[in-house]
Amino acid sequence: MTADSILEIRNVSKSFDIAGGKKLLAVDDISFDVERNSICVLLGPSGCGKSTVLRMMAGLETPTSGAVMIGGHAVDGPGQDRGMVFQAYTSFDWLSVQKNVEFGMKINGVPAAERRERAAHFTELVGLGKFSEAYPSQLSGGMRQRVAIARTLANGPEVLLMDEPFGALDAETRWLMQELMIDVAEKTNTTMVVVTHDLEEAIFLADKIVFLSSHPGRLKEEIVPDFKQGRRIGDKEHVVKLDGYGNLEAHLMRLMREEGRHAA
């Protein structure tokens, strides 16, 4: 346990009740820490329990045993301190972009003037400044995800949890969004936990990769991409060209293969 970890996952297991009165062990005794202001990526083949772990961090699921700690306290239900961005679009279609971004602040009693200012700031940050009066249905998929990210950030969470946030986007947009996240992490000092099964995305975003193996989901390996030398690099092309990128990708591919599923 490091002094500056914000989230601590302590011996967390989760089993689901499934048909026929049986139980499915989805997550088996996982422990790891997420350091403050870091980007932690949960990687693994699909079905290995990444979403389940993230949802337990969010407080949307309760661990069967073990605990998720935030700032030293056990997570007990969802809260403003942990914002979540889903893969599916979650824009509130009846509200303009501006009102979407204000939503969290509004329900939490932030005064109107401050709300407007913060919303404008984060809308600008995700590159939607010109669209603040538009309705989500008028936006593309990537722009809607930007709305969701701005809405979550504007609410001032300590941790931003994202479950395959760019999984539904085309490759080019996904790339732009990944670079945007590096930019946002630098500018807002928000801790991020990102779930993905995309190796490239994991390597590009991560300060630390937590690799889960499947059935049941166990922690296989914690990997720090040393080749980035502790820097955040906002240009994906640059990262791909660095020495050591290839080695790490090959290593992750091997881990994926061992899980007997799709290798990248």
């Binding site: 949307l60 979550t152 609410n155």
Partner: peptide, 18 residues
Amino acid sequence: VREELVETALTLGARRST
């Protein structure tokens, strides 16, 4: 109404009535 909308609101700090 999609579950993600409800969960988004919960993680933004909304109470059940909200």
